[in-house]
Amino acid sequence: MVFLIQKTLIFAIPLLIVALAGMFAERSGIINIALDGIMIFGAFIGAVFALNIRKIPWFVDHNQLTFLLAMLVAMLAGAVFSLLLSFSAIKLKADQTIGGTALNLLAPAISLFLIKVFTGQDMLEMQTVRNSAGEVKDFGFVLLNDNLGPIGRVLFDKAYISTFIAIALFIILSIFMYKTKTGLRLRACGEHPQAADSVGINVEKMRYLGTTISGALGGLGGYIYIATVANGTATGAVAGMGFLAIAIMIFGNWNPIGIAFGSLLFGFLKCLGVVYSNLDINGDGVYALTKLNLPMYFYNMVPYVVVLIVLAFSAGKSRAPKAEGIPYDKGQR
């Protein structure tokens, strides 16, 4: 059971953070189809940073700190990269789908180009290095502690530090979005920018803010993805995770609670597809799901099919921001 929860979280956390990223951009009025690219870029820069800083043994000794620093760097990288999108979409009023698609092409191109220039390979691995004591430390910067006690073990054993930070960030940013003045203004710019402008809100600034937060979260999500799900290998791809996160955001109706529900549901179903073969539901030593003799493709498919079914039944309640995707033009009514 503990195992299942942990696995679910590993899949759900990147989705959760990146779907929130999408929400921040779209609620401010910018469609961020570039999330996949931003994830790739953040993951790449974060991996380069972690790889290089871990050449110093002190940072290998302080694994958690290194992990945190790499997360910060990835956030920064994502934020800077997203400026390309916000500049074209806000300043030049370019089509946001085009800008986003360009970024989705640009991120793997830059990452792979540089990875190839510096390593001669097509991927970047940040696996095992030795610490100051000469012990081999692998990349999995996990919180591992034997004297945590039973409750502590459920929560912290083999869990990544990023999980807790991501959940905390998710809660803080959701409160920011719904309970602060800036959050309200940001949402207004996604619904009716002309009205927002008429009461003195700087629409451009708000949209820059939304997209930049979105970029930072996207970069973070990308780094968490390669550090946890992909076992520390940056390959210039995140297996379509960014697009999936956009789907989860739409599924969650552009609000945090829906997104949290969506990503947990999806993460759970996804992890079921990975662990089904050794899943003992009632503890009688019988692996019930293997007896059905269905191929893994079936279990892989389940999360997507379930999402479609849920969508079909909850259709018609979509609450997309009204002004998303439309460049703000002061002269328009």
């Binding site: 997507y304 969508l311 979509s318 997309a320």
Partner: peptide, 20 residues
């Protein structure tokens, strides 16, 4: 017919097709 955003359905059907 149902009014569901086509982007999300397209992304889902992509992966369903890949598995089928």
């Amino acid at each position: 017919v149902l009014g569901v955003n086509e982007v999300i359905v397209c992304i889902m059907t992509n992966w369903i097709a890949a598995n089928i």
